[in-house]
Structure formats: structure tokens, C-alpha cells
Design a protein around this nucleic acid. Structure first.
Length: 590
RNA sequence: GGUUCCAUAGCUCAACUGGAUAGAGCAACAGAUUUCUAAUCUGUAGGUUCAGGGUUCGAGUCCCUGUGGAAUCACCA
């Protein structure tokens, strides 16, 4: 039990003893005391006035007095308006510190037995990954780390969109002007190579449209009838028929892309437990729709297409099967959702997908609910906002798309430059330096993106993202490196808490540490890694202030020094745990 | 037009789910280094929380109305 819960339950006892009634849920409101006031924990008494039938100050006074008399760990209290500020004793905090320090898994919540699947990344195989995918990947990775910390079994999955007209476009352009080029022959990363042919297709397409328009065709008609587009569509039909040549080319080029993606994933430090491919799942879901049709949940239009009427829910009608009987995106998702819930007996299914698909997931849940699946409510769309640049949205036409691999390299170079400038890496080998620069650059980038509330549109300013001072990943990494440096020098010294008095600043650091498991639970419930990022920053900042004007190793009193070492070590361990949730590693030196 | 989301310091973001005098970082200015790592710390300045109403002991947070912005409403995925 942390200090907040401890005071809450003590306050509940006080109310019962003083007023004879058990306080109802929500009436005991306890929060950390704000810095301006004296105390550790604050009880808000306003909700209790109906029970006490007294003025706020008088109620606070009575409860404060009772607590001081009956709870040994409470040292003093003061009252400001309707707020009862309670100060816990130094020995209480010392005990808390000892307990935290002795738990190597601190921050890991007990197993819940629940299984959660997180789907994220889900790229198309016609373009390399860009900044938007990075936000997706980082969110997906960190939400799954977070849920693991909450005690759930977590399964990370990727659903690769490996089929469709866009893939055929790249293939066609490669056939027309690739001259047999491969990643090996060109030295290019496969996803970039294929992406270039996708761009090439669009160039050829535009040229044809222009020519047709010049010949007197309307722009709309020209865009629909450009020969190269017709060719791509014909290729898609061949692919669906299993034409050996087309399928072979498709396999080869997708293989190039997967190699490229793997490298990007590795540089971001993410991986999956299972990868699904749309080419294998896109036909699923039809049976589900047929079933709904026979039960009168869906209806068939005159042309044979199947729909779900959602006008009663304030939405539109949604197509589920085309007139020719083929399925659409929604059909597939209905099918895969059911397959996954049944195969893995999921308690929750999280889709990390951009907010441009809010409507899709709203409809998905509604339809599954109409089909009678109780687990429809266990679907959570982790919807995140776009990443914009200082000059506005990323536009591929204007060439402002920030490529994931380029960004990773740029961040690495900046980390390297900054580190070498500071010149603290004497005696570090090349490979150690390399891994440090990776840690720092990815730490900066990941923290920059993850500290923002997922659902908000965020601005990515390249200049600001490479700033390593202030509220940044490297700030937290630096705090850790300094602690590790102390601990190295303290090797052989005793580390025990509870044998010495604590400074006020030490108590507030311990209070922060003590609130960590609750923060993990809260962040998990809110599906928000940003809460963990903010916690880590607060803890690092609090420790830095403490570190600045307190001696640790140089402290002469052995009991005090020993306790400070325990505190430092526990802060370092908690920072590692929190940052690991974000997918950020902390160096021992920097 | 329907649905959903967003709006807080010059800029980027917080605010414990309704609590005290709305906090950090960046940028600006003034300081701290014979030091356990200055990628740090201290201070100054910066606000009608988009506007107006409502709910109550109490609203950045909840409910209306409006303004501004974003996404979406395909026989694309």
C-alpha cells in the first residue's frame, strides 16, 4: 500500500470513529500535497461535510487530530481552507524506501491472467516507413510494454498490407523501367527501391494523363483511362487468379520490402510475436456477413451487394460485400477480429491506428455488437493524431515526407556530434560509443514523440527534437548515467536504508517513487505511455535537484551515506523500468 | 450536412479524471562549476486556459451555444 492509499484508509477510519458512518465511495479524496504547502499528503474535506455536519475547517481539525492521535506514522498536520495537509514521519518514509529498494521487480504489477493483443505498424509494402509510422510503431511498442508491466499477457502483431493495386503499380513500373535492378545490384534498401518505383509509376501515369487531356479528354476520364493504370488493374486481376509470373514478381519485390522493414524495425528496437499478411486474410469474413444476412441483421441491395444499416446509430449505411460478392476492408476486419478472439481467447484487442480511421473502428465495433459478439466492447482503437512539421502536413507531392531511416541517421549523427563535443567518453571503445550514440539518439526521438498525449496532433520540429537539454530523453539518460557513476565509485560500500534521518527533499523523492506502481496502473487503464514519460521526467528532475546540493559518496556519516546510496540506486532502477516501458535504454556513462 | 477529435505562456507540452495561487521545457534575461558527470542547478519575466452561458462549496477539466482547426462519411485499404 502506498502513502496515498494508507492515508485514505486511515481517513476512512477517522470518519467512521468520529461520525459513526462509513464514508461512501468517492468521499475520501486524497492527493499529494502541492509544493507550496507543508505536508506530504492532502485530504480534501469538502466531500465529507455532509457527514460531519460541520464547517470545512472544523471537520479538517477533528479528522487531523484523530489521525495524529491514532496513527503512529503521522507526524503533524495543518489546515488550509478545506484542505487537511498531513506530514508523515521520517521513519515511515525510511521504511517505504527499504521496501521499494528490496523489490527488484519494482513497478511490475502482479499477473492478471488476461491476454491482450496489440496490432500496430501495419505498413503497406509499396513505400518505406515515414515519421507517421514511427509514431505508430513507438506507441504500439510502448503500449504493449505498459500492459505487460500491468501484469497482462501481451501479444504484439503486425498486419502487413501486401496486396492490392498499389503493389501492382510498383511492380509494373519496375518491369517497365527497372532493367532488372535489385537491392543487391544497386546497394539500396529494398523498401526504398520499391518505393521509388511506386513514385515512378505515378510519374508515368501523370504523363499519360497530361497527354490524354491535351488530346481533348476530360481530366476525370483521363485519370480513369490512362493505359498504365489499366495495365496495373489487369495485373491485380492476374495476381488474384494466381498467375505464376505475377505472383513470383510479387513475392520477390515484397521480399525486398520486408528486408528493408526489418532493418528499420531493428533500428527502432521493435519486434512482433506474429505477422499477419492481408494476402492471406483478405478473403475472410464473408461467412460472418452471410450469417448476419440470414439472421436479418444485414440486407441485400438490388444489385446483390450487402449492407449494414447504421442510420439508427446516427451513422450511414456500410457496405460489407460488393455486388460481385467480393469483400471489402470492413469484411476482412470483421473476420480477423473474430478469428483472433477465438484463437487466442483475448480479453482485449488494441488497434494502434491513426485517427483518420476513427469512423472505421466505430463501425467495426457497432457491427460486431449487432452480430451478438460480447467481445465487441473489448476492442480498443488506440487512435493517435498526425505528426505535422513546422511548415504543415507532410506531403509526398511536395517532398516533405520525413523518411524514417533518414531521421534515424540524422539523430544518430547529432548524438555523436554532441557527445564528442562534450568529450566525456575517454577510454570508451568504438563499439561502445556506437551503441551509446544509438541509445541517445533513439532516446531523444522516442521520448520526444511519446511524451505527447497520443490522441493529440503533434508537431515535430527537427530542430527541437535534437535538443538534448530540458524535458528530453537524454536528460533522463544523463540522470541515470550520473547515478551509475556514483554507484561505481561506491562499490564495496554498505547500502542500507532506515538507519538515518531523511532530508525533506529525500522524502519527496521517495514519495514520487512510491507512487510509481499506481502510475503504471493508471497509464495502462488510460492506454497512455505519455503518463509514464512524464513520471520519468518528474523523477529525474526531482533527483537532479537533490543531487545538486547533497553529498552522496562524500557524505562522512556512514549511515546517511548508505541510505543515500540506496535512494540513488532505487531511483536509477525505477527510471530504467519506466523508460523500458517507452522502449528507451539508459546508459551507464555518457 | 452527419459523426469524431482538438484549442492552455511567444513556441512545444503538463495539470493526479471536479480541488488550493494553472505547471515544466525551449527561446529571453541574471546567476552557480578547485564538485559524486554543468547534457545539470538557481532566479527573473511571460496567462481573461478560444468566446459566452449553465451545473456547485469549487470548472482548464462536466453540460449547452457559438468561433477556429483536424479527420472521416468510397463497390480504396
Amino acid at each position: 500500500m502506498n502513502h496515498i492509499d494508507f492515508i485514505a484508509s486511515s481517513a476512512a477510519s477517522a470518519v467512521k470513529a468520529l461520525y459513526g458512518t462509513e464514508p461512501g465511495p468517492g468521499l475520501i479524496q486524497v492527493q499529494p500535497t502541492r509544493k507550496e504547502f507543508e505536508g506530504d499528503v492532502t485530504l480534501v474535506v469538502f466531500p465529507l461535510l455532509k457527514t460531519s455536519r460541520k464547517a470545512p475547517e472544523a471537520t479538517a481539525q477533528e479528522i487531523g487530530l484523530w489521525l495524529k492521535d491514532n496513527v503512529a506514522q503521522i507526524e503533524s498536520y495543518n489546515i488550509v481552507k478545506g484542505f487537511l495537509n498531513i506530514k508523515l514521519s521520517g521513519s515511515y518514509w525510511a521504511e517505504v524506501l527499504s521496501a521499494l529498494a528490496s523489490n527488484p521487480e519494482y513497478g511490475q504489477l502482479p499477473p492478471t491472467g488476461k491476454t491482450v493483443m496489440v496490432e500496430f505498424s501495419s505498413p503497406n509494402t509499396n513505400k518505406p516507413l515515414h515519421l507517421g509510422h514511427i509514431r505508430n510503431n513507438l506507441l504500439g511498442w510502448s503500449i504493449s510494454q505498459l500492459l505487460k508491466a500491468c501484469g497482462h499477457n501481451v501479444m504484439r502483431v503486425n498486419l502487413v498490407n501486401d496486396r492490392g493495386i498499389h503493389i501492382c503499380k510498383s511492380m509494373l513500373a519496375w518491369l517497365k523501367c527497372g532493367n532488372g535492378i535489385t537491392p543487391e545490384s544497386s546497394g539500396m534498401k529494398g523498401d526504398h527501391l520499391v518505393g521509388d518505383f511506386y513514385v515512378k509509376f505515378n510519374d508515368l501515369f501523370k504523363a499519360e494523363v497530361k497527354e490524354l487531356v491535351a488530346g481533348g479528354m476530360s481530366e476525370d476520364d483521363a485519370e480513369k483511362n490512362a493505359p498504365i493504370l489499366k495495365e496495373a488493374q489487369a495485373m491485380l486481376v492476374k495476381w488474384e487468379q494466381g498467375d505464376p509470373e505475377v505472383v513470383e514478381l510479387w513475392r520477390t519485390m515484397n521480399g525486398w520490402v520486408y528486408d528493408g522493414f526489418d532493418r528499420t524495425y531493428r533500428s527502432l528496437g521493435i519486434s512482433f510475436d506474429r505477422t499477419y499478411y492481408e494476402s492471406q486474410t483478405y478473403k475472410g469474413g464473408k461467412a460472418l456477413v452471410e450469417d448476419g444476412l440470414s439472421r436479418g441483421i444485414f440486407f441485400r441491395a438490388e444489385d446483390g451487394s450487402v449492407w449494414c444499416d447504421l442510420t439508427g446509430d446516427g451513422l450511414d449505411r456500410k457496405l460489407l460485400l460488393r455486388g460481385d460478392g467480393t469483400s471489402v476492408y470492413m469484411t476482412q476486419d470483421l473476420g480477423t477480429a473474430r478469428q483472433r478472439f477465438e484463437e487466442y481467447n483475448l480479453d482485449e484487442m488494441i488497434y494502434v491506428v491513426g485517427n483518420e480511421q476513427n469512423y472505421h473502428f466505430q463501425v467495426l465495433k457497432l457491427i460486431l455488437g449487432k452480430l451478438g459478439f460480447g467481445w465487441a466492447d473489448s476492442i480498443y482503437h488506440m487512435s493517435y493524431g498526425m505528426v505535422e512539421l513546422p511548415e504543415g502536413k507532410m506531403k509526398s507531392r511536395e517532398g516533405t515526407v520525413v523518411d524514417a531511416d533518414d531521421l534515424v541517421v540524422k539523430m544518430y549523427n547529432t548524438a555523436k556530434e554532441t557527445s564528442l563535443e562534450l568529450g566525456k567518453l575517454d577510454g570508451m571503445s568504438e563499439s561502445e560509443q556506437d551503441s551509446l550514440f544509438r541509445m541517445l539518439s533513439m532516446g531523444a526521438m522516442k521520448y520526444f514523440i511519446l511524451k505527447v498525449d497520443p490522441k493529440k496532433t503533434m508537431l515535430f520540429d527537427p530542430k527541437e527534437s535534437i535538443d538534448f537539454n530540458g524535458n528530453t530523453g537524454p536528460f533522463i539518460q544523463y540522470t541515470h548515467a550520473r547515478i551509475q557513476s556514483i554507484l561505481r565509485k561506491a562499490e564495496g560500500l554498505e547500502k542500507v536504508a532506515g538507519k538515518a534521518e531523511l532530508l525533506p527533499k529525500e522524502e519527496s523523492v521517495i514519495a514520487l517513487l512510491a507512487s510509481y506502481p499506481e502510475k503504471v496502473r493508471e497509464a495502462g487503464a488510460a492506454h497512455s505511455p505519455a503518463l509514464i514519460a512524464n513520471f520519468a521526467y518528474d523523477l529525474a528532475k526531482e533527483f537532479n535537484q537533490y543531487y545538486h546540493d547533497t553529498q552522496i559518496i562524500r557524505e562522512e556519516d556512514a549511515a546517511v551515506r548508505s541510505q543515500r546510496l540506496v535512494l540513488s540506486e532505487t531511483v536509477a532502477r525505477t527510471l530504467r523500468h519506466a523508460m523500458n516501458i517507452l522502449g528507451i535504454e539508459l546508459p551507464d556513462r555518457m
